[in-house]
Amino acid sequence: MIDTGVALAAIGAGVAVGLSGLGSGIGVGITGASGAGAVAEDPSKFGTAIVFQALPQTQAIYGLLTAILIMLGTGLLTGGNASIPIGVGIAALGCGLAVGFAGLSAIGQGIAASSGIGATAEKPEMFGRSLVFSVLPETQAIYGLLTAILIMLGTGLLTGSPSVPSSAASLAALGAGMAIGLSGITAIGQGIAASGSIGATSEKSEIFGRGLVFSVLPETQSIYGLLVAILLMVFTGLLGGVTPSVTATSVGLAAIGAGLSVGLAGLSGIGQGMTAAAGIAAAVRNPDSMGKSLVLAVMSETFAIFGLLIAILIMYGTGMF
């Protein structure tokens, strides 16, 4: 027999591997389609196609890793009577959301990697730069994995003695997971921008540096998400071994609100990615347009800032700091 805590953790494990598998599946599929096209033209490009197709797979590995760690930590795999406090179960659900939603970044990585295959097939010297661009959307998945690990660390799932400082902490972990997970979906925007940059650099190799600048614009949203996630965890005592300033359940529920605020607003990165892709293409045609394209591209970021602002105000208003 298992108790509710373990059951919730099991849901978390399922969400982790399920959502990230979804992301990786689609991303790898997008890349594979491009690879099939390249191989039809020139069968010797098979190796390159495989390398690029491997990139979006990492998100599913992170999801699998998190799921296994959750199951190990809650004793689900050792069989028999597993039992953990409900709070830890909720926090594990937060882990699952963090890695799962952030795993959707693989879709963005797939978009970028598929451009990479195309560029490398045409010009083999583009391999290195295309690889760099294709790795950019991975950051969001790393942040998701990181948050999941930090939550597991803080709730003792990794050290074998699970416990939460308070119910606020467990709900805050859920909020943190949503913050970093949902905002991690901006990697789709980053993938679109990276894909555009690969095309631009292929045409004009000296635009590589500026391509990088445009490609990382949509990443800011996930930084905001990470920031809120870390702050939520620190202030409710999940991280850092300092006595938390708040412990009430209501505060934890508010923390979910903060997480949703910065997380959902973070999806604005998809729009930012589209502008950035067009911006770098414009810079190839007319180098003077770069500054103005940059301004147009960061407009979408304002909404993410609104989300961050509200999240911070929620944390302030509930007495977290």
Partner: peptide, 20 residues
């Protein structure tokens, strides 16, 4: 404000390496 907060990635990547 965005530029300022962007430097939080220093912490994030530090933790990422250590965590993994």
């Amino acid at each position: 404000l965005g530029d300022f907060l962007s430097y939080a990635r220093l912490l994030a990547l530090c933790l990422a390496t250590g965590g993994i």
